[in-house]
Each structure stands twice: as C-alpha cells, then as structure tokens.
Design a protein around this nucleic acid. Structure first.
Length: 278
DNA sequence: ATGACTTACCCGGTAAGA
C-alpha cells in the first residue's frame, strides 16, 4: 500500500496535476492539505473517475484537509481530541476550530491528514496557537498509541517546522528571528517523537526539501525547506519498505509550492515490492 | 529550463502563506 501526503495549495487549481500524479505514481492513499475549499466546491468527479473515494474537511478559502483513497475508509474524524481553536477575537479556549485535521482508518492503518498552523512570527498570537496545536497533537497521539498498542498510526502532512538545520535552506529564515526553526517549535515537534512517533521517510531519504517558496527563485536555487512529514507509530514504521520525495512535482505549469512525500507499506499478503519508479 | 510569487475572495485590493 502506497501512502502519500501533499500540501496541494488549492485543489480546485491543482486537481488535474494531483489526479494524474496519483494514477501515474500508483498511490493508494493521499492525504492533502490546503485544499482551500468547502465540500461543495471540492472537484470530486476527477478523483472518483480515477477510482478514489475522498473525505474532506473545509470551512472556507483557508486551510482545508482531505484524504483520497482507493481502499475503503472508515471511522472518519474531523479534528483531533484536544485540538486548539483559533480565530480573530477568539484566542481563548472557546475559539472555533480551523479545518486542519481529518482522520480515517484504511485497512488497519489509522491515518491523519494534518495542516499545522504557520505561526506567522515568533511574537504573533498565531505562534502560541502553533505550539499548542503540536503539543496537544503529541499528547493525543501518545494516548491513542497507549490505548492501541502495536497498532499502525500515521500522522502525515505539513508540520511547518524544519526539525534539523539541514532542513532549512531558505536564506530569508534567520536563526533567532524566524519561524519554523525556533527552539520552541523544534521542541514542540520533538514532542511527537517523544510520544513514540518517528519520521519514517528520513532513514530512506536523508536529503531533500519538500517546499520551495514561489518567490526569489527559491526552487531553481534549491533554497527550500523540509517541513512535510510522514510520522509513524512503531507498528507503522516496521512496515515501511520504501519512501520518496517527489521533487519533480515542483516543476512544470502551476505547481504547488510543496511536493508529495510517499511511503510504500507492506500489508498482509502483499509485501509491496513494486519499485518506486515514476 | 526548475526562472524572479500564488491563491481566494470577488473584480481591486486585502489576507495569508512560510
């Protein structure tokens, strides 16, 4: 089973590229972020014609997450337990939830498509929101793994944190002054690993970015960032047999600023030995 | 070329991204 994550930066603008890639790359499950639309606006037909079922959560033109799958999805959940809310004028505990998390079970794999808040600036209220989002996500994932020992869980998506110095290649991000690389953000990301999740792509693909800003020739200069991850529980990580970062998807007409990240997972009766050649 | 931002709102200018 091939599982991927991709911040598509508007599915209405990008659905042709996304569905073409899904079919050509022979991907079974795609978690999307920044679909930027409501359910009524989602281009469902192209996915269905290609053989994918889609579940999604979108409230308006901001954020929005979805999962497309060739296999049946069950136990679909909108938002994770303890997910903090945020809205202008509502920064307290009663703030409405943004469309940043959707979960589903496919085969025996529990997968969450996640769009972690950007943070905007180190002293912005959005940064505290980002940190709380990551911390509560780690706590909830830890609780889930304790209640479901050995079960395969994957938290995938755009985490908006560059955990290692090598993950930050954009010279406009300055240590001590910029988001994505601050000690607080890295500590909040590390809480996911401390809860028992691991980056299942890094061991197989040690080099490479997943995002390049549209501005300042960031892609031709290869000044990108590695901020999109597939984090797995031990029961998920043990079954990963291959991984790729789909850098080619940053090229051509109207690309997203992010590219897909893919893993091949061994499943019962299928060790998925198809080569990952696209 | 991998090339100097892009998208959604709704039709000009704002909000947001990372």
């Amino acid at each position: 089973m091939r599982i991927a994550t991709w911040n598509v930066n508007s599915i209405r603008t990008r659905y042709g590229r996304v569905v073409d890639w899904l079919v050509n790359a022979d991907v079974d499950v795609l978690a999307m972020q920044e679909i930027k639309c409501t359910p009524a606006q989602f281009p469902m037909e192209p996915f269905e014609e290609a053989g994918y079922e889609v579940v999604l959560h979108g409230l308006n033109q901001w954020n929005g997450v979805a999962i497309a799958s060739r296999l049946p999805m069950t136990d679909v959940e909108i938002g994770f337990r303890g997910q903090p809310g945020f809205a202008k004028g509502h920064e307290g505990p009663d703030a409405p939830l943004e469309a940043r998390a959707i979960g589903a079970t496919i085969d025996d794999v529990r997968i969450w498509s996640l769009y972690v808040p950007n943070g905007r600036a180190l002293d912005d209220p959005h940064m505290d929101y980002k940190l709380r989002f990551l911390r509560t996500l780690a706590a909830d994932a830890g609780d889930w793994m304790a209640a479901n020992p050995g079960a395969p869980l994957a938290l995938v998506g755009d985490f908006n944190v560059a955990p290692l110095d090598a993950d930050m290649g954009d010279p406009s991000f300055v240590p001590g002054a910029s988001t994505h690389i601050s000690p607080a953000e890295r500590a909040a990301f590390a809480a996911l690993e401390e809860a028992g999740l691991s980056d299942v792509v890094r061991p197989l693909v040690p080099e490479g970015y997943t995002f390049w800003d549209y501005k300042q020739l960031r892609f031709p200069r290869d000044e990108g960032m590695r901020i999109d991850f597939i984090l797995g529980s031990p029961g998920f990580a043990d079954r990963v047999v291959d991984a790729r970062i789909e850098r080619e998807q940053r090229k051509g007409d109207a690309p997203s600023d992010h590219v897909p990240v893919v893993v091949a997972l061994a499943v019962e009766g299928d060790d998925d030995d198809r080569p990952m050649i696209f």
